[in-house]
Design a protein around this nucleic acid. Sequence first.
DNA 1: GTGTGCGTTG
DNA 2: CAACGCACAC
Lengths: 269, 269
Amino acid sequence: MLKCAHFGTFESKSMKIATWNVNSFNVRHEQVMDWLHTHSPDVLVLQELKMEQDKFPAAALNMMGWQTAWSGQKTYNGVAIISRHAIENVQMGLPQMPDDPQRRVIAATINGVRVIDVYCVNGEALDSEKFVYKRQWFAALTHFVREQMAQYPELVLLGDFNIAPADDDVYDPVKWHEKIHCSSEERSWFKALLDLGLCDSLRQIHPTGAHYTWFDYRGGMFPKGLGLRIDHILVSAALKARLRDVQVDLKTRANERPSDHAPVFALFD
Amino acid sequence: MLKCAHFGTFESKSMKIATWNVNSFNVRHEQVMDWLHTHSPDVLVLQELKMEQDKFPAAALNMMGWQTAWSGQKTYNGVAIISRHAIENVQMGLPQMPDDPQRRVIAATINGVRVIDVYCVNGEALDSEKFVYKRQWFAALTHFVREQMAQYPELVLLGDFNIAPADDDVYDPVKWHEKIHCSSEERSWFKALLDLGLCDSLRQIHPTGAHYTWFDYRGGMFPKGLGLRIDHILVSAALKARLRDVQVDLKTRANERPSDHAPVFALFD
DNA sequence: GTGTGCGTTG
DNA sequence: CAACGCACAC
């Protein structure tokens, strides 16, 4: 934002918005600081903090000029928004699941953009009890996002969706056929979100090709380039009009003690 | 060793011999590699590998030009000899305790010097069952060293003795009076080793003063300089004649994720 | 494979 | 405070 004496306040609005499942903010704290310094985003949202609410290093981030909002718990889940700009109207959880103790959703308005950070349920396997929860949770998410879209023309829904939307997003679609993350039912949930009027920003910019965001620690999948695209940045029509680029930051996945997810970021005019 | 065309093979014999309780070689592997690179000893002996026998990274060490001999086990104990020179006549355990499963002793001949690496029993407390084992173990060690001294004029007995030989070796002798590591009975066992004809090399070079080698992780003892001298390098008369210096490497104790013990090294002509 | 907590040891 | 094993999650 530039303040000009003669022309009043001029909003440049240009924004860089990023998402990263850090798989423990305790462990990845320094890497997040490095990433903020190197990539200088307007907004970075995190998932899988695995950190208690009162252990979040808000003061250290504030000292570096960052605003923060977060929802943490011990061991599991946990989401955060880190922003160079003011964070307004923070909302946590899904209205349809008021008693869910799992910290998976945080939403806030930044520069007039509604940012909804999600760590979607993994689900383990199609025949798991956790898959039932995943189904219910995505229904509640869809309901929440529909309601938010009615209020905020400029909206971005981003995070770890634990769904690979198409076979292009899977290193071995035959092996993963109707497996967790790749089943047609999960893909129908993802499509239901798009049907609200959201656009899969990565596919808008890169209609084809492998742009994996997650690589299993097991079996050295990252060096082999074998992953899934399960981290997404979905944007409303108003934001889609401003979309200029989307990238998966594989360099960070190659770090010394990496998260199993790579950051993904989008650039807007 | 210098090879001279006109005068034949000339043995410089100058040696640097070091000991370090690494408190898990799994965790300290990289620090050990760094230490070898920085200090370039002739021999480094380790204690508390806490590593299974077949997990020892012998190949990696060989590639860096080091010879190795080790005796490992899961979780507890474990000793190793790392040498720039050939390692001969390797012996493990104490002859008087043939059935002891605890890996605490490894001996070998290097450059004509008998090197005996020991991780002596901790003992927990004077009224503990483990103290009975410590007593028995030191008797067996003394017997073994007597036998070895008869065979090898140049001998060094080094490692973690878990005994602070005198009040000078204790940051708070009153608090530690007749406590584990500092009791008169344990000190008598240490003296029994010296009485075989061994010399406490550190006290030979530095007759007085604090030269602590172990600092409890608990209560931030290292920054306060509060420790015990329980890691020792004892030398036979023939080696004592060649002794030039002994130092405790406190810089390594100040490492990022340190062992609770500092390395100790001795220089010989 | 790399995180988490817990209970145990030094 | 920092190793360990164990059980569990992803």
